[in-house]
């Protein structure tokens, strides 16, 4: 464990807590993309299949349970909670996210480190996570008024993988043979997708203006 990875995990944890806080306290998911939340639930379900077979640490297992629990409960809230589901803007959240799942699955079948069931699904989860934010970014472009909590959620979610990139650099420099091109490239693509959001987020923060993405 290194400080970059810890910072990344804490930032990631903060992002899901901000979202759960928003949904649970103000009983609203306005501006939140259900498609992105469903994709993240799939990412965690396929990434943490080894939760019962391989144990690394209490921390590792605990965080996996938190991410699994939070992502599925957010999907549940947005789909089935009587009050929250009414605040979901279904007409705006129209990204065909299943068109992301299939290419990621095909790519995982083609490019992976080992051709085993767990490894292919794990690789699939890396590719899917890289693009999972797209429905949310598209939704933010459509809904002009981005409330603070949703903006913070996307900002933290984008920041965590950035810390992970620093973690991979650190591990590459300190651990012999730590080379994982697939993880690195997927993580880099993921972070780059947030680039324009980060730009407008900082602009709004610097000028103390409401966050607005260009249409």
């Amino acid at each position: 464990m290194n400080i970059f990875r810890l910072a990344g995990d804490m930032t990631h944890l903060a992002s899901v807590l901000v979202l759960l806080l928003k949904i649970h306290t103000i009983k609203s998911c306005a501006g939140v993309s259900l498609k992105t939340q469903e994709l993240y639930a799939i990412v965690f379900a396929t990434r943490y299949l080894d939760i019962f077979t391989s144990f690394y640490s209490i921390y590792n297992t605990l965080m996996k349970l938190i991410f699994l629990g939070s992502s599925f409960s957010i999907v549940w809230y947005m789909r089935y909670h009587k009050t929250v589901r009414r605040t979901y803007d279904r007409e705006q959240d129209t990204f065909r996210h299943w068109f992301l799942v299939l290419p990621c699955l095909l790519l995982a079948l083609l490019i992976h480190e080992k051709f085993t069931f767990l490894e292919v699904l794990w690789t699939f989860s890396l590719y899917l996570e890289a693009v999972a934010i797209l429905p949310q970014l598209v939704l933010l472009q459509r809904t002009r008024n981005i409330d603070n909590l949703t903006g913070q959620y996307v900002f933290l979610l984008g920041g965590y993988r950035g810390f992970y990139i620093l973690n991979w650099i650190y591990r590459y420099l300190t651990e012999p043979h730590f080379v994982h091109w697939i993880t690195w490239i997927a993580g880099l693509v993921q972070t780059l997708l947030y680039a324009d959001f980060f730009y407008y987020y900082f602009q709004s923060w610097k000028n103390n203006k409401k966050l607005q993405l260009p249409a």
Binding site: R5, D9, H12, R47, D50, S54, Y56, S57, N60, M63, K64, F67, E113, K114, W122, Y164, N167, R171, E175, H177, F178, V179, H180, T183
Partner: peptide, 10 residues
């Protein structure tokens, strides 16, 4: 077992 090295990450 460097392959698993990335598996200890979340």
């Amino acid at each position: 077992k460097d392959g698993s090295a990335a598996k200890d990450e979340l």
